[in-house]
Design a protein around this nucleic acid. Sequence first.
RNA 1: UGGGGAAUAGUGUAAUGGUAGCACGACUGACUCUGGAUCAGUUAGUCGGGGUUCGAGUCCCUGUUCCCCAGCCA
Length: 567
Amino acid sequence: MIESKDESKERLDFVRQIVAEDLKTNKWDGRVVTRFPPEPNGYLHIGHAKSICLNFGIAAENEGGVCHLRFDDTNPTKEEDEYVRAIEQDVRWLGWDWGEHLYYASDYFEQMYDCAVQLIKTGKAYACDLTAEQTRQYRGTLTTPGTDSPYRDRPVEESLDLFERMKAGEFADGSRTLRAKIDMSHPNLNMRDPVMYRILHAAHHRTGDKWCVYPMYDWAHGLEDSIEKITHSICTLEFENHRPLYDWFLDELHAYHPQQIEFARLNLTYTVMSKRKLLQLVQEGLVTGWDDPRMPTICGLRRRGDSPESIREFCRRIGVNKFNSTVDIALLDHCLREDLNKTSPRVMAVLRPLKVVIENYPQDQVEELDAINNPEDPGAGTRKVPFSREFYIETEDFMEEPPKKFFRLAPGREVRLRYAYFVTCTDVIKDENAQVVELRCTYDPATRGGDAPDGRKVKSTLHWVSASRSLEAEVRLYDHLFTKENPDDAPEGEDFRSNVNPNSLEVLSSCRVEPSLAGAEPGTRYQFERLGYFCVDPHSSPEKLVFNRTVTLRDTWAKIQKSQKTP
RNA sequence: UGGGGAAUAGUGUAAUGGUAGCACGACUGACUCUGGAUCAGUUAGUCGGGGUUCGAGUCCCUGUUCCCCAGCCA
């Protein structure tokens, strides 16, 4: 379980304030029981992470607190086992533990049915023969009251009989419903005799063909919370309109009654968060799958290299509120860099190799030079990196005609090769298209390790890899999936899909990485010095190394270039 | 024109009648064998209008804007 780090003096969000107040007044006998209730019909995304961290976080922060993982599987037509496993994996990966408290709404179907029978008997529910279309018409509109169903006042015995036969599968899908008898002219449409059960002849992922009626959300959810003795039922804002119904059902049943609290869901710049849109991206091949590293899904973020710690920290920093807001994706990037900087071993990799030959370095000599694994973590130790006469640097680290603030290699200029030597560019070799294909240099043997005994300075330090002693690798550079902060900001007649960033993925197949990366395990994170944080892709192998870029390092030079281009 | 919510720097959030603070971003500068990291600094805010009060982001009135609701989805 995650430690709450000196949260004592930290301000509590409004949900935690309610919990704290309830603890003080002993409203729930000192218990704190929350739940995360996903419907197993899709993959979790970072918006869910906010909810997960809220619910599991509150449980973790309070003595004896518990958070249930509950699958809200009340709609067999949409739900699958595959999602159950994926959701469990994601929650666990994020660092949370539900212990014994794994539940399924479908385990309560019997109890729910009994409760429904009870409501029919007290005259608070009835079997209704209206079709879906008719039900809609009878409901009225936002500004006009609805009309009572002609079946509203049918005898209790008749409703009981019909409901039982609905359950037994005697009637076709959609032919009947069980409805709560509340008020067809209620200003809140949710209270206009809401449907409690619909007929669905569908196989459920857990109960199979046992049931032909399935409970609706409003009816089921409060019961689930009640059965599990939840204290604080935390959900998103759109359920605020449903709270009166949540309360009504539980009151009518005289059942244990948790408090529903609503908070605003997370929105992030440069991405979409709705299940529908995410599904669309996958189905239309705009991304490679749910775990595409450009997706805001937990599995996508994981594959891209995000750490659970950074996601949790992000969720802590964004806070919890009751109004809609859109968090700048830069905050996620910041949390990522903050964590990865402390934890990722440094390594050298050249993405776009430019060959360099040191003319005064012995032909077949190879030296093993000491490199620091992580300057932020002395305990990470050092490693040897092979250096040789021929090596590669980053193409963009050389300019034949360097502009003002370009500190890197240029003809006649001396720079440091990290952990190696000072080298000076003496010659530029071009191909028939006048493209620079190779550089010639001299090196200063006295600067071995990277320091000049005479104390002279260089303006720049470059990363490099030995030509003969480096490995080939594929590196995938990811950028925001959308070109606009708000992807929905699309021209008339178009939608978010037209804002997909065509440059959100660049695959570089001829990268060179230092030999210590041989056999790097999928999921391992590294910092490629001066470039960014990279994570070994699940499909990487010793034969073909594949890295995904998680996030770049902050890049002052890129910023200077940008401001020079667009003054 | 029904009902339910909500408005604090560019963004995200604190302040619960008593100095509007923090973080991210942006911009300076210092330092640096990563143009990284780190450190120091600058920038910028209470939706509008009234009122109560010694004192209002907070309380009252009023206006404005935004979000949610007419699935047998959750």
